[in-house]
Simulated scan of single mutants.
Amino acid sequence: MFQFAKSGRKIVKGVSLLGAVAVLGACPADTDREPPVSKEVRELADCRHPAVLPDIRENLRQTIRREAQRAAEQDKRRFIDADKIAAAADRLQVRMQSVRADAKLCTAQINVIIPQALLDTAERYAPILENMSPAEIILNRTANNNLRFDGQAVMAQLDYRVNPDPQHFAVNYSDGNLSLLGNVITAALLSYGVKDMIVVNGKPLSRDAALRNAEVPRAQTVIRPDEVETLTPPPPRPEESQRQLAPPETQAPAAETAEAAPPSRVSESRLEAARDAHKSADRDIKNAWHNIEPQIQQGLIEEQQHWENRKNRDCRSAAEKGADDAESQYLHIQCDIRKTRERIKYLDSFSIQ
């Protein structure tokens, strides 16, 4: 009796142990469970969906193609080739950054970079259409809206919503900034689309020939720190100007020319160091400009143009004091650096950093 009871207890314990194992086997370990994903994380992932940027690019291209076609149809002189502008749209670089999600509304900054070759070509043929330069067109059209222009990239904040369902994927844009971007870029690139051959006064001309014959004055581009020009050579000294203007027969033969001029007081290494310092100052003033809010930038553009004109005038006067070409360049550069550094201190007072 005693033995049986003892065995019975062993059987019961064995059954209980098997039951516990079965229960544990039925419940997966906590470490195997997927961590819960918050609503905010899901929304941000939707905003960053890899198909969003291609959709933005395609919408922008369609807008530019549509606006280019409309401009070509309205061009009574038939100078504009809409297909050229559409091809230019394919070369634009579109980038998206600073993506945020807020109450199912996505926000991102869109940068549309216009290759310099496109801007240069559009500026070259702008007189044929009697247009301003592309940079000035963009500046004028971004003065009173949410768009910005830094000399090569047009920037805008874009609000949109994403339906991530693979069967019904869609991006819905809740503001008009994407269309506005397309309109501004199309206007800037219209002169890029000037046909290779155009008809002027009944005569077929290449666009380069038409450009040479154009009597349209070039529009003055707004001068900005982004577009600070490299050092221009100083004007020739008075005696050099007179020698260049003198008739050929009055100039002395080569055998009778004066002996070689003495070495310049400014060595080539010193001049090269000045050029490097000028490049550094150029970079610094561009950075100072980029650190200013766009609205404040717009108010400073005219003032910046007046400063640039004064600087160039004063530095040309400084260059005239040089005894030779190297010294004149050196004085011009030193003047430019000094005034640029002074201007940087002024612009830093408006910095958002």
Rank of each mutant, 00 (worst) to 15 (best):
Q93R: 12
W307M: 08
A187D: 15
Q69D: 14
P28D: 11
E40F: 13
N291S: 15
A326T: 09
T121W: 15
I333V: 03
R91Q: 06
L92C: 09
I292T: 07
K203G: 00
T230I: 06
P127E: 01
A103P: 03
R218W: 02
K345L: 05
Q157M: 15
D282C: 05
S174N: 07
R218P: 02
G19R: 15
K311N: 01
P36V: 14
V99Y: 05
V15F: 10
A68M: 05
T221H: 06
R57H: 12
S38T: 04
A89T: 04
A214N: 00
I223W: 15
A72Q: 02
G299N: 13
V15Q: 00
D325Y: 10
I352R: 10
A82E: 03
I137T: 04
E130R: 14
G19A: 11
E215L: 08
R338G: 00
S264G: 06
A45K: 08
A71N: 03
V21S: 07
S269E: 09
A277K: 05
E239F: 06
Q298T: 12
A209D: 06
N163V: 08
D81G: 02
S133I: 06
E342D: 07
L119F: 01
A156E: 07
A277V: 07
A210I: 01
F169H: 04
K203L: 06
R161V: 09
Q297M: 03
A210C: 03
R70E: 15
L300G: 08
R124V: 08
L181S: 01
D208P: 08
A187I: 13
K203W: 11
I296Q: 05
L178R: 02
A89E: 02
A20I: 12
A26I: 14
L24E: 04
R33S: 11
V200C: 01
Q69E: 13
W307H: 04
F4I: 11
A281V: 04
M155S: 14
R343I: 04
P253H: 14
V52L: 03
I301W: 12
H278P: 08
E256D: 10
T107K: 14
V228T: 10
P248Y: 15
K195A: 13
W307K: 09
N144I: 05
L129C: 11
H332W: 13
A277R: 11
D325C: 08
E293A: 13
A273P: 05
L190W: 00
H290Y: 06
V94N: 03
D102Y: 15
L211H: 04
